[in-house]
């Protein structure tokens, strides 16, 4: 049953993953400070963990102000 039709149906799912990833990465690039201070680490988390990674970033990674 794992055939071409099923892969076609998976396309929108992959598209959603990519949209979420791009939105998270765009936010990451524009942001000055993130939780923990390591933007590269957040980038890796967003890319590696599909769907979950961007959400974790949106909820925990974003910081409005830089406090040292």
């Amino acid at each position: 049953m794992i055939n071409a039709d099923l892969i076609k149906l998976l396309l929108p799912v992959v598209l959603l993953e990519i949209i979420l990833m791009v939105l998270a990465l765009r936010d990451l690039v524009r942001r000055e400070c993130v939780t923990g201070g390591n933007k590269v680490l957040w980038g890796i988390i967003i890319v590696i963990f599909q769907v979950i990674g961007p959400i974790i970033y949106f909820v925990f990674g974003r910081k409005d102000t830089c406090t040292q």
């Binding site: 799912v13 959603l16 979420l20 936010d27 769907v51 961007p54 959400i55 949106f58 974003r62």
Partner: peptide, 16 residues
């Protein structure tokens, strides 16, 4: 970000 996260997650599971 709320506008992305909740609808996208729900839609994701709706399709998957």
């Amino acid at each position: 970000y709320k506008i992305y996260v909740i609808p996208v997650i729900f839609l994701f599971f709706g399709l998957l």
